[in-house]
Amino acid sequence: MESSLVDVLEALLFVADAPASAQSLASVLGLTEGQVEQGMEMLGSRLQEKGSLEMVSIAGGYQLCTKREYAEVVANFLKPQRNRLSRALLEVLAIVAYRQPMTTQEIDLVRGVASDYSVRALVERRLVKEVGRKSSPGRPVLYGTTQQFLHQFNMKDLNDLPPVQTSEAKASEIVEETL
């Protein structure tokens, strides 16, 4: 039965062109999310042992991808366009990822330079999107990261981001120590 579940999960992940969440899989299969997660663990182990594919937990779901050792041959076959992000785009992306939602002006204050172009470029790449408007004069647009951001940077969720000691965190630590 467990073997059958693993096969079914593998079939579903094979046809999925986006990360499939445990919730959606459980809903389709009439199972609990725990059962699906358990099945995914078994599938991951099975794929790890043999074959060219592996199961990854990415962007809030599960997805199949090729193993690292096949990267070169697959790249030669697909000839993907590599468009790595520049340092400026990575800066803006990191700031938004940690402090979202935030306005372009707030990003400017952190970087010390204008970031309009970078924000636009990230929106075009679907790494950042409008998530609302701030309740302040002019109602500026608030930006946040997308599922595409998680997918492109191999993250399961935003908790995968490394802890960063920002000024705000330092200030709160000082307050706590003082009290």
Binding site: T66, A71, P80, R84, N154
Partner: peptide, 12 residues
Amino acid sequence: WQQERAAKFFRA
């Protein structure tokens, strides 16, 4: 992570 992700290929 950007480099690591470039070595993985998903269904388009």
